[in-house]
């Protein structure tokens, strides 16, 4: 079930970060767009974690997995747990996440596991929209004003190293992410070029999320997310 946790935790943590934007977006229309994307990711997370819990067969439902695991048990990539930063950082994170999730969900929608294929088929359509949204904003920020260009380039530079972890080989998964990096680059590089942004050089490649070795940020994120649920063991909400 580790590959399901990886997918589900990516979506859950991404949703949690996007939820932090509520009532803080640059414009009201964008508040609505970010909430939509958060709702999509949260919806995918719930289906994936529910399925993971059923496969495990230990009686854990989506909430048990979301609220009662510690950071060392989370399997999400480091990219999604990074703080939101400014709007440019959030859009860089979304662009790279969506450019990874789109080919991944597309491949998974044809995999032998029918339940997973159905979840991926739904998520693929949603992620295509997330990619579109991030692309539009990357173009506008990259090719907007001098300040927005500077911020967007800085955001891309900051987040780029974390994209390598997304394509770590996992031969046991229904779709091995290692084979998706070419598609990722084929999506991302033209966007960066059109946005007049420099594609960062590959180099430092932090990783560990898939093994439960996270950044310092995740524990704080979980502390906030889990505080109420954990304060009332066994309660229903």
């Amino acid at each position: 079930m580790d590959h399901l946790l990886a997918l589900g935790d990516d979506a859950l943590v991404a949703a949690q970060r996007l939820g932090e934007w509520v009532a803080a977006a640059p414009e009201l229309e964008e508040d609505i767009a970010l909430a939509n994307i958060a709702l999509d990711q949260l919806g995918a997370a719930r289906m994936l974690l529910t399925y993971a819990g059923e496969l495990e067969g230990a009686g854990r439902d989506e909430d048990a997995l979301a609220y009662l695991r510690d950071d060392r048990e989370f399997r999400n990539c480091l990219l999604v747990e990074l703080p939101n930063g400014d709007f440019a950082v959030t859009m860089a994170k979304l662009l790279f996440l969506a450019a990874y999730q789109l080919p991944l969900y597309t491949a998974l929608s044809g995999c032998a596991d029918e339940r997973l294929a159905a979840i991926a088929g739904k998520a693929r359509k949603e992620v295509a929209y997330h990619l579109d949204h991030a692309r539009l904003w990357t173009l506008r920020l990259g090719d907007g004003t001098a300040e927005s260009h500077r911020r967007m380039q800085s955001a891309v530079d900051e987040i780029w190293p974390y994209t390598h972890e997304l394509f770590q080989p996992d031969p046991t998964a229904p779709v091995d992410p290692a084979g998706l990096r070419a598609e990722f680059l084929a999506i991302v590089e033209p966007v960066l070029a059109e946005a007049t942004l420099t594609r960062p050089a590959d180099g430092w490649a932090p990783e560990g999320g898939r093994r439960g070795l996270h950044t310092e940020h995740l524990s704080y994120l979980l502390a906030e997310m889990q505080v109420l649920h954990r304060a009332h063991p066994g309660a229903r909400w």
Partner: peptide, 13 residues
Amino acid sequence: PDAELALRNARDL
């Protein structure tokens, strides 16, 4: 700001 984003915002709203 422009037609592309107007279309996306319209979809969302």
